[in-house]
């Protein structure tokens, strides 16, 4: 945990003249699980899109693996492909489960046979539905396919945007275990957006609270929940925050 994988400085994102995100400074370290918590509409998802380089910051800079990007230039494809996002909704293609999982590899021209796909499907417990159309799956299964489609790429960074919202406890537990395993066995860096403080507590090494597009507090999970510095963090953790 010395050199940050991501380092954000004075990053601001403006939509239609309205500033939705203003981060003075934030670091993500290689190999950690960082949870971004806060009420909905505070810019958590916007921040993830910036980290995946799907959008450019209006102002400020994002340093990724030692290279500084300030929103003027295009981030090279090879760098962008080091990160991937699993969104709240799985957005599966109207094809077989197998084809969905292979999609990212095919984009990279790295698809080499079905064994790779079979292994990952085994990992998310979906080896039996490989040939089924992905649209016929249940919500939890669909989200596991979305996760499989992301982890097969072996990304440096896995960005998770409310990956288990609206899922049943069985699937939540399954997905959380896979995420924890990816982090522990492969040192995959994970940034998790969640409105669920319990999930943040279960998974994260560090937690950041965002309010109105600003970072209120970033702290190791223990500190964040037990002895937060900011009164608003304490209120959020207690469930007293009205939003």
């Amino acid at each position: 945990m010395n050199t940050p994988l991501y380092h954000l400085q004075q990053v601001e994102k403006v939509y239609d003249g309205r500033s939705v995100l203003h981060i003075e400074e934030l670091s993500v370290y290689a190999g950690e699980i960082l949870a971004l918590v806060g009420p909905s509409g505070v810019g958590k998802s916007t921040l993830l899109r910036l980290l995946n380089f799907l959008e450019r910051p209006t102002r400020g800079s994002i340093t990724f693996r030692g290279r500084k990007f300030d929103g003027q230039e295009e981030v090279p494809l090879a760098e962008r492909r080091r990160a991937t996002t699993v969104f709240q909704r799985p957005f599966l293609l109207n094809r077989s489960v197998r084809a969905n999982v292979a999609y990212g590899l095919r984009l990279r021209g790295q698809y080499d046979g079905e064994q790779q796909v079979a292994d990952v499907l085994q990992r998310v417990g979906l080896q039996d539905v490989a040939d089924q159309n992905a649209r016929t799956l249940s919500g939890g299964e669909a989200q596991r396919v979305a996760l499989a489609r992301a982890i097969i790429l072996q990304p440096d960074v896995l960005l998770l945007d409310e990956p288990t919202a609206n899922l049943d406890p069985y699937n939540v537990n399954l997905i959380e275990n896979i995420v924890r395993q990816m982090n522990e066995t492969q040192q995959m860096t994970i940034v998790l957006v969640t409105h669920n403080v319990f999930q943040a507590r279960r998974l994260a090494h560090r937690v950041t609270l965002l309010l109105n597009g600003r970072v209120i507090e970033t702290a190791p999970t223990e500190t964040f929940f037990n002895t937060p510095h900011d009164a608003r963090t304490a209120a959020f953790v207690r469930g007293d925050m009205v939003y």
Binding site: L54, T84, T85, L93, G104, L107
Partner: peptide, 26 residues
């Protein structure tokens, strides 16, 4: 086709051409 699919395709590493082709294929 859900416009969010373009975003998901790019998040999985698609170039703009690949994302467009993915939508056409859908």
């Amino acid at each position: 086709v859900d416009p969010q699919l373009q975003l998901q395709a790019r998040a999985l590493g698609a170039t703009p051409w690949q994302a467009t082709f993915t939508t056409l294929a859908e």
